[in-house]
């Protein structure tokens, strides 16, 4: 690990000023991803700005019912009201990592974690994310874990977050701040597809800090769930996962969000699956059609073609659970 200057600001203003002043600075919050990247020499900041002293760790319900979750709330958050209003979020959080990691990992950090591609994480492999233009060793490598949606010839890594998939399904926004002021970014626009610039992981500018995640007011979100397929029972990244939110009125689905994890370089929304549900009753045939639609346009490789079936399975499981609840 290269050495760095360490600072622990006490206010957000101070923090974003530090980021503005030090182009080589990285933010550390929970550290559960960044510390390993530092150790492996994948990130080499000159400054480390420790934001743990900024507060930003409250859940506040806004007038009108929206909720703002401080960026430094830990993933272990255990808030019964959140669980009632947004079951998919709580389920996704509990499906992520381990209790120890959830006790440290923050909402902001979880969203901004780097891809879990081993070719990215092992410096001996070529990786366009680490070194633009270096090439992508994963393209000709073992691709069992890699993406089937949203890839490019420059990167086929998957975004590892469970929480982000749930937030996407809930139409969440992140609030960010810099010395220039604040802005809101939809989670749907936070992560970037690799395209020709896989090193540009997200839409945040380097001097911006996430201060909160905002979820829109219910009741949309209350009827939701998260299903995750992985290689072992717990403490493993998703091979495929589904966050499903449905609003059923008059016996038919009026509105829904079907979002997928573990299959794309960003949390992946399947509008095709949502279309298949719209205006239809949540019965076996419709669930099957939606699960099938969720796999449409998948671009597979020999090692990861199975993910098409897994996507089908997790979507079916999620919708079946929601049907049984209603």
């Amino acid at each position: 690990m290269r050495t760095f200057d360490y600072t622990s600001p006490r206010t957000v203003d101070e923090a974003v000023r530090l980021l503005a002043d030090h182009p080589g600075a990285d933010v550390i919050a929970g550290g559960t991803d960044l510390v390993t990247l530092l150790r492996d020499g994948i990130r080499t900041p000159t400054h480390l700005v420790d934001v743990n002293g900024l507060g930003l760790d409250e859940v506040s319900w806004q007038p009108g019912g929206a909720v703002r979750i401080g960026a430094l709330c830990r993933n272990a958050i255990d808030d019964p009201a959140l669980g009632r209003a947004y079951p998919v979020l709580v389920k996704a959080l509990r499906a992520g990592a381990s209790p120890q990691i959830r006790n440290r990992a923050t909402f902001g950090g979880n969203l901004l974690q780097s891809v879990r591609c081993p070719y990215f994480r092992l410096p001996e492999f070529a990786c366009n994310r680490r070194t633009p233009g270096a090439g992508c060793a994963a393209l000709h490598g073992d691709s069992r874990h890699h993406a089937i949606f949203g890839t490019s010839e420059n990167c086929i890594a998957v975004h590892p977050s469970d929480c982000a998939v749930a937030l996407l399904a809930l139409d969440a926004h992140v609030l960010v701040q810099s010395t220039r002021g604040t802005r809101r970014i939809p989670v749907a626009e936070l992560h970037r597809l690799p395209g020709r610039t896989p090193h540009e992981e997200h839409a945040l500018r380097r001097d911006e800090l996430i201060t909160a995640v905002e979820l829109p007011a219910g009741p949309f979100g209350a009827h939701s769930t998260y299903v995750k397929a992985r290689d072992r029972a717990s403490f493993a990244f998703a091979l495929a996962s589904a966050a499903a939110v449905v609003a059923v009125r008059g016996g038919v689905v009026r509105r829904s969000r079907i979002c997928l994890g573990g299959v794309a370089p960003k949390p992946w929304r399947s509008t095709a699956a949502e279309e298949a549900l719209r205006g239809r009753p949540l019965d076996d045939a419709v669930i099957e059609a939606a699960a099938d639609a969720a796999t449409r346009d998948a671009q597979t490789r020999p090692d990861n073609a199975y993910k098409v079936d897994l996507v089908h399975g997790v979507v079916r499981q999620a919708l079946t659970e929601l049907r049984e609840q209603s």
Binding site: G30, G31, V35, T36, P99, Q100, R104
Partner: peptide, 19 residues
């Protein structure tokens, strides 16, 4: 490497002492 940090279990390898 699990320890209790202010009463909560955390991984002491994933955090820096200086923090």
């Amino acid at each position: 490497c699990t320890v209790l940090l202010n009463g909560r279990r955390v991984l002491s390898c994933l955090t820096l002492a200086v923090m």
